[in-house]
Design a binder for these strands. Structure first.
Lengths: 359, 359
DNA sequence: ACCCTTGCCGAAACCGGTTTCGGGCGCGAC
DNA sequence: GTCGCGCCCGAAACCGGTTTCGGCAAGGGT
């Protein structure tokens, strides 16, 4: 039984095809194979094509570990999850990871994840993963104002992309992906105004995150476009989580001239409105209008369900993964900045203000 | 300025210490350093200690990639998340990852995660990660009956651990960690019975998972211990998710002799009871008693909150990570099997049956 | 006809580890 | 006093890649 020519691999258990195998079959030096596959200009076009074809036929994939020891890069993207962080984004995590790993896999990359409890621990994990060459760059979730993570990574010349946009005094040069929360907020105000609302409250999220200022600005822009005054008494900031969302709503409802519409910058906080409303004998979707932001699944199970601007966590993961890989490969920052729109999901928590008959 | 002796590393940016550096300082061959650190018996105890101390002082950590190319193992554990899977466990994901990565980090290992939409894709990911040596073994979430993943991994001689216990005709030899769901179920029945309930319904989860049979058996054991008959009319199986949980409850409530207590094998399904009850003018915690299982955060925000048997996802991750690493290092299967108790969290969804005054 | 580029590729060093092989040395046995 | 045997360790090969260096041949210019 002669070995079939071409050495085509079959079966699951077979050992890897190495660069030496390819070189032998192609009748060239292994250095030539390496250069041909990585697109080195020194190799003639004819030769490159021939080697590429042979490598593909033999199912050759360079072992990233072996590459890493010479090049320092192992085709892996890193993600450090803030475990002690507020759990607002946890429902998205699976989707986000799915997008990220899909983007990675489509380029033959993989994903290393770790968790850390706080910022110093996060920086340690960056360092460790980078030192071990188990991540060539990082995805940073939830961009913060004057983000210490970006400072550290820029200092160490490690590539990264931001989920969210950089902001703050020392605004770091960064690649990023973000949903246009400010547009959503402005549009939401417009929706309320179109229904006849004139007292529209805004409940903002964690002020250390850069999304906060953006969404707040969108709210204010929306008021201006609708010709409504900006009333500081209708604004609450730094509201994270359901309990805080309830307290914020309770405080707003307790005023002399309470709002009839509530714009929350996070769904999780928005869900706190239900109880605050019930405590005053009011019902969301009949007496009060509310719009949230994020699109968390729990919102769909409230009574009535929460209307919101949904963000596609899987898309975010995909885009961020793609941007990071391109960044690591050397693409300039300016070409690596994207926003996507948040899409309105009307579930029934909107209504006209109480004492208005029709529009 | 002479270079300080001992070559102690300082600062964040410094290049890695390599085995050659250590060998030079210790005045031995690098092969000796390698053997000393990996505990090879050929090295004298005195020498081993001396080299260990020097390596520690210089902050030397072997580059896993370089080891991997020779040994085939890169100190990484793999996790393939079923993205298309029912989202019941998603709330836990962050905690679970935190536990896994903590276990990995404590041994100097890392975690590679990917997602896949179905079983064949999952097997592909196993293969790819293994082939690329980016995972030395895998954690399998949600053990299934006659699990095709275990078959494939055993066949390929790849180490793995199971979250859940193996079950089925071809029960695979495996290492595992699991919470004692059957004990929780039996105990829950006892709680209901102690309150005076005699019609206790059981709503089981996905029948392809091995937890299903275990929890069902616990329910039946609980009935027996309480001296209650087993009534098939009180049992629903294959109920996954809130909507299905509602339908199951509605069907049970529509019978001639409806149950007064509901034991759900998953919290997510249990949350469906609230709407089914309201549709019949009943209120959970007053007219109906319910206990769930899992301990998802949403349960705490229902009205009244859902009493449940909580599982500690972080603990699960930690234990599974530890077991897998030991498995990869060659520990025998029999020593790598653990269960932990689920802990009862009383939040107020329990009550005596309606037409009973006191106990 | 000669020299100098330039294009293309082979040979070998190198990356940072592990593992095989063999040899020096100390020791006890004969 | 040898011989033989184990204990330790050095030297070198090896893993699977990348990269440097240099040489050969073809082509162009004078």
């Amino acid at each position: 039984m002669a070995i079939p020519e071409g050495e085509i691999r079959h079966g699951i258990r077979s050992a890897r095809t190495t660069i030496t195998d390819v070189a032998r079959v192609a009748g060239v030096a292994k250095g030539t194979v390496s250069r041909a596959l990585s697109g080195h200009p020194d190799i003639a076009e004819r030769t490159r094509l021939r080697i590429r074809k042979i490598a593909a036929r033999m199912g050759y994939v360079p072992l990233s570990q072996a590459q890493a020891i010479r090049t320092g890069r192992g085709r892996a993207i890193g993600l450090v999850i803030q475990a002690g962080d507020h759990d607002a984004y946890r429902p998205f995590l699976a989707e986000f990871l799915a997008g990220l790993s899909a983007a990675a896999a489509s380029e033959g990359w993989t994903l290393s994840v770790t968790t850390a409890d706080d910022i110093p621990a996060t920086l340690d994990r960056f360092q460790a993963l980078r030192q071990e060459r188990k991540a060539d760059g990082f995805v940073l979730t939830r961009a913060m104002i004057d983000d210490p993570r970006t400072d550290a990574l820029i200092e160490a010349e490690v590539p990264f992309v931001l989920y969210g946009r950089p902001h703050g005094r020392r605004r770091a040069p960064a690649a990023w992906f973000d949903f246009a929360g400010e547009t959503a907020m402005a549009e939401a105000v417009g929706r309320f105004a179109a229904l006849g609302h004139r007292r529209i409250a805004y409940v903002g999220g964690g002020t250390i995150y850069t999304y906060s200022a953006l969404r707040r600005a969108g709210y204010e822009a929306g008021l201006q476009m609708a010709g409504l005054p900006l009333d500081p008494a209708l604004i609450q900031e730094g509201v994270l989580g359901r309990a805080a969302g309830r307290d914020a709503a309770a405080a707003l409802l307790a005023s002399d001239d309470p709002p009839t519409a509530f714009l929350y910058s996070t769904d999780m906080a928005a869900l706190g409105l239900w109880r605050a409303a019930r405590d005053r004998g009011l019902q969301v979707g009949r007496d009060l209008a509310v719009i949230g932001y994020d699109g968390i699944p729990e919102g769909a199970h409230a009574e009535p369900p929460l209307s919101t601007y949904g963000t596609d966590a899987r898309l975010a993961g995909e885009r961020l993964g793609d941007l990071l890989i391109r960044r690591i490969r050397g693409a300039p920052l300016e070409s690596l900045r994207e926003t996507a729109p948040a899409t309105f999901v009307d579930r029934g928590s909107l209504c006209p203000p109480p004492n208005t008959s029709g529009s």
